[in-house]
């Protein structure tokens, strides 16, 4: 564990150094990400000024759903940015060089390039999220549930990124699968309660956006049941188990083409 943290620290430092050499590019992407957040936040704010509530949730709660989505989304992008760069490795056969190294190949391609831009946005985002959460006066127990369910959401996000990597080995396609994953999870910017069946069921059980992003907020509000919370952790464990099995299966299909 200590060894892997050291490796992650080293790889992240290298990744940060690379991005920091192009400060202007970094600032453009940073401004873009902040603006994108502000556009949707502004829209939601003005919408709620007019409607006062959304699907039975008051304005503060609806905004908190959006912030929680961002927390899970930005942290997973910060950690798993390397996934977006995996395709050339497979197409060129450079993945061979990863496989021969005395470390987990999955760890390298999953977490080998932390994103400095997302890293810079995490602290202000977390501070705003904490501030908005205090406006809802959550109990200590519900706050603990919220934190645990956010961690569970990140575990599910990890599982999906592993599945995307595995698909990349089998199909050499990654760009669209990762973007479709992101489009689907972006449906979690708002509580999944707004969607009708069967889409709501799909977003709760198949691509469990509801468990990743909606359930933590329901827990902090005090609307989640103990059985629902338990089920969420079971889904998290099953998702990571299936993704690891799929990764092993995909590795056996790797043809080392072009190497």
């Amino acid at each position: 564990m200590k060894k892997y943290f050291k490796i992650w620290w080293m790889m992240s430092r290298n990744s940060f150094s690379m991005v920091l050499t192009q400060k202007f590019t970094l600032s453009i992407f940073l401004v873009g990400k902040i603006l994108r957040f502000l556009f949707f936040f502004g829209f939601l704010y003005f919408l709620l000024l007019g409607t006062k509530n959304l699907a039975g949730y008051n304005s503060t709660q609806a905004i908190f759903f959006f912030l929680t989505f961002n927390v899970v989304d930005v942290i997973s992008q910060f950690l798993f940015r390397e996934v977006y760069r995996f395709r050339p490795m497979i197409v060129n056969g450079d993945f061979d060089f990863v496989l021969v190294k005395p470390m987990s190949a999955l760890f390298r391609v999953l977490m080998g390039g932390a994103d400095v831009i997302d890293f810079l946005t995490i602290p202000p985002l977390v501070i705003v999220t904490i501030y908005i959460s205090t406006l809802m006066n959550p109990t200590f127990q519900n706050t603990i549930y919220y934190i645990l369910l956010i961690l569970n959401g990140l575990i599910i996000a990890t599982a999906f990124h592993i599945i995307i990597l595995s698909f990349a080995i089998i199909t050499t396609e990654i760009d669209h699968s990762v973007m479709i994953y992101r489009d689907l999870t972006s449906l979690g910017r708002l509580p999944v309660d707004i969607y009708k069946q069967p889409l709501q069921g799909f977003l709760t059980y198949f691509i469990p956006v509801g468990i990743m992003m909606t359930l933590p907020v329901r827990a902090i509000i005090g609307l989640a049941t103990p059985s629902g919370i338990f089920l969420a952790f079971v889904v998290g464990a099953v998702a990571i188990f299936i993704s690891l099995r799929f990764w092993k299966f995909a590795l056996r299909k790797y043809s080392s083409a072009s190497s």
Binding site: L54, A55, L190, L199
Partner: peptide
């Protein structure tokens, strides 16, 4: 497909409002 997902978010949001 990605375009359809974007439409779904806005459709259901307004449908709820």
């Amino acid at each position: 497909v990605r375009n359809v997902f974007q439409i779904l978010l806005t459709f259901f949001l307004w449908s709820t409002v």
